[in-house]
Design a protein around this nucleic acid. Structure first.
Lengths: 137, 137
DNA sequence: CACCTCACACTACCAATTGTAATGTTCGCA
DNA sequence: TGCGAACATTACAATTGGTAGTGTGAGGTG
């Protein structure tokens, strides 16, 4: 399975995951390989949460392919299948492709506006890349 | 209400709508203001479909703000609140902004690759726009 | 005038997704 | 040898989208 929806009314990891899923991924991405208990304890620091709830969601994340589960004796250790950077890289690439594929020229028109608003320096960066690409040929 | 999610595993209008919703929007965007019956008849040409099913989904689309409903005597006429062009414009803009906001420089790195793959001419177009923007200042 | 039909409203059910949690099972160790 | 921790199984609730039955009201026709 994979991520197949990008939520426009959320932000951060919540764009890709449900709220509990997102908190779990956040923990796993900012720490070492962990057992369910470890995750549950960390979550419980903010909000009491049932162990089984955490287990269910984590196993679902395994089914989705974003977590890897490994048996270590009688406990299971979990870690993301991709680093956060890889994940964002993959997602942003996929979304960029999808956007271009779906909207083509329309998106090009927005890119500059969006870039300027987000960070004008990015426009420079983009131009550099275009120049580099041209030289290549 | 509005569109909250962009599906990466679908294409076309199905990225924004459920399958039946998408077919309904397609019809409404490619024809005049219509009654439920009109839409149902058109849909039924491909697949038998219950009048009430169509009505329910169309009313939900009104709730979501993508259709406008207008009483004409005892029948209701429906039409999109935005033209298809406006809708795609809005969506692509929103998504582009979201993407930049969420990923910033990461997306810039992908844009060229994506552009090149989608249509190399778009890169030209983008460069033109950058030049135009520079002159402006 | 009674009635029938048609358009619409209301309500409900199903499947999938996500959060929640009770109950059941297994296995190591005290 | 039986307890407790970790895991498995199962299920329920809310939400979203597809489906459709039943109820209501208004207009035309016999």
């Amino acid at each position: 399975m994979k991520i197949h929806s990008f939520k426009t009314n959320e932000s951060g990891l919540n764009r890709f995951f449900g709220p509990l899923e997102a908190r779990i991924m956040h923990i796993l991405w900012n720490g070492p390989e962990m057992a369910i208990k470890d995750v549950q304890v960390r979550l419980a620091k903010e909000q009491a949460i049932n162990f089984n709830t955490v287990m269910t969601v984590m196993n679902r994340l395994v089914d989705k392919g974003v977590l890897r589960k490994r048996a270590e004796g009688r406990i299971s250790l979990f870690q993301p299948t991709q680093s956060l950077e890889q994940f964002l890289e993959t997602q942003s690439k996929e979304l960029t492709n999808d956007l271009l594929e779906e909207f083509g020229p329309l998106v090009v028109n927005h890119m500059l506006d969006a870039l300027e608003e987000a960070d004008p320096a990015l426009i420079e960066q983009l131009e550099q890349k275009i120049q580099a690409l041209k030289k290549e040929r």
